[in-house]
Structure formats: structure tokens, C-alpha cells
Amino acid sequence: MWQPISTAPFDRDLELAVMDGDGVHALVFPCRRILAGWTKSATNERLDISPTHWRTWKPDKTDV
């Protein structure tokens, strides 16, 4: 279930939802909240995004 972005925890892999002109989309990679915003979990690359919702990242069983 999606949660408001204001309640997103730190130090956990999260699935984020972002809005654009076509609607709401879930990002296809896990992200982490940091004090300055968001990073891509796998690379620690800083992301320039404004997500609207979050939920716990559940890795695809084929990824493990």
C-alpha cells in the first residue's frame, strides 16, 4: 500500500511514485531517502526527483 512521501523512512530501500504529465508512475529501481533528498540504492547516485508516495521495495524473485 502506498504511503505519503512525508512519512518515508531513512536507511531503507523504497519504491517511489512520481507524477508527470502522463500520470503517476512507480520507479523501477529501489531508492533511499537521505537528508538532502533521494538516491538510487544500488549506486548512491543522487536523484533529482519529487516523489509523491512510497512503499517498501520488494525485490523481484528473479533478481535474487
Rank of each mutant, 00 (worst) to 15 (best):
W2I: 13
Q3G: 03
P4R: 06
I5H: 05
I5W: 05
S6G: 08
S6A: 10
S6V: 06
T7N: 11
T7L: 13
T7F: 09
P9M: 08
P9V: 08
F10M: 08
R12H: 14
L16N: 02
A17N: 03
V18I: 12
M19H: 13
M19W: 11
G21S: 10
G21Q: 10
G21M: 10
D22C: 14
D22L: 15
G23T: 15
G23F: 15
V24R: 13
A26K: 12
L27Q: 03
L27R: 02
L27M: 09
V28T: 09
V28S: 10
V28R: 12
F29P: 08
F29A: 14
C31E: 01
R33E: 03
R33S: 04
G37Y: 02
W38P: 00
T39S: 01
K40V: 05
S41E: 02
S41C: 04
A42S: 11
T43P: 02
N44D: 08
N44G: 02
R46Q: 05
L47R: 00
D48F: 01
S50P: 00
P51L: 04
H53D: 13
W54R: 02
R55M: 11
K58I: 14
D60C: 15
K61G: 10
K61I: 12
T62G: 03
D63G: 01
